[in-house]
Simulated scan of single mutants.
Amino acid sequence: MPADPRWRPALVVLIGLLLAVTGCTAGAAGPPPAEPAVSAPAPAGGAEPESIDIPKIGARSSLVGLGLNPDDTVEVPPVTQPLQAGWYVHGPKPGEPGPAVVLGHVDGNHQPGIFFRLKELAVGDEITVRRTDGSAVAFVVREVDQVAKKNFPTDRVYGDTEGAELRLITCGGVFDSTARSYQDNVIVYATLTGSSR
């Protein structure tokens, strides 16, 4: 079954966000980026994700819904709360067919972010997403990639999938102090392995 087409119109702006590095900060001196709102409504259908747990890297966070800003870029968790992860509400929910997307900071506010150690994940590592109905969905990492933002693999990340998959995305690589952004993205591809109540 293909990914829910409801999020297709927002796909281009999501890519633009990732390529422009919005939400990936280094906690460098100077004023932080403006804090976006993170209260966008989620599409109807299925249980919403509530939290994420990645034991290998000690990453545990509640999940806030991320929609679109007024300028049509994707919202990110506030940089003043770098340990907060969020999920893109206009895409599939984790556990639904298609690639669900979770975004997190590599760092911010002069401290490591929720996905600071994301690049340490390896094939076979487990990720659990708990949902508001009390259920949980388990994913296993099948690939970890680090790519230059200018070569972001749009089709691989957001293309339709028959089963439920998960994408975790943060920034990585060299930090460009002039642009105040990282040059790469770290992307984790994971596949659903099961669910429980």
Rank of each mutant, 00 (worst) to 15 (best):
A100I: 02
T128V: 15
P94I: 01
V144C: 04
G86C: 06
V101N: 01
A136F: 05
D145K: 11
D145Y: 00
A136S: 15
P112R: 05
G108H: 10
A138V: 11
A138T: 13
Q111G: 11
D125P: 10
R142D: 15
G124P: 12
A138N: 13
P94G: 02
P99D: 04
P92M: 05
S135P: 08
V140W: 00
V147N: 00
K93S: 07
D125Q: 10
H90S: 11
G124D: 12
Q81G: 09
Q84R: 13
T154P: 00
K150H: 04
R117D: 14
A148D: 13
P92E: 08
E120F: 04
F115Q: 06
I114F: 08
L103T: 01
P82L: 07
G91T: 03
V137Q: 02
F115E: 06
A138K: 13
G104Y: 04
G134E: 09
K93Y: 10
R131K: 14
V144G: 03
V140I: 11
E120A: 13
H105P: 07
A122R: 15
Q146F: 00
T128L: 12
G86S: 08
P94H: 03
A122I: 11
W87V: 05
Q81C: 12
S135K: 06
V106F: 08
S135D: 09
A100Y: 02
V101G: 01
P99C: 01
R156Y: 09
A148I: 00
T132D: 12
K149P: 00
L118M: 12
V144T: 11
N151H: 07
T80D: 12
E96K: 02
I127N: 13
H105N: 08
V102Q: 02
R131S: 10
L118T: 04
G86Q: 06
G104V: 07
V141H: 07
D107N: 15
Q81N: 14
V102H: 01
P92S: 09
T80F: 00
E120K: 12
G134I: 11
A85T: 10
V147M: 01
Q146G: 03
G86T: 03
T132V: 12
R117M: 08
E143H: 12
F116V: 00
P153D: 05
A136N: 13
P99Q: 03
K119M: 05
P92I: 06
V141D: 07
V141Y: 06
F152R: 00
V102C: 01
R117P: 00
L103D: 02
V123E: 15
F116I: 00
F139S: 05
R131L: 11
G113Y: 06
T154V: 14
V102W: 01
R130N: 13
V140N: 11
A136V: 10
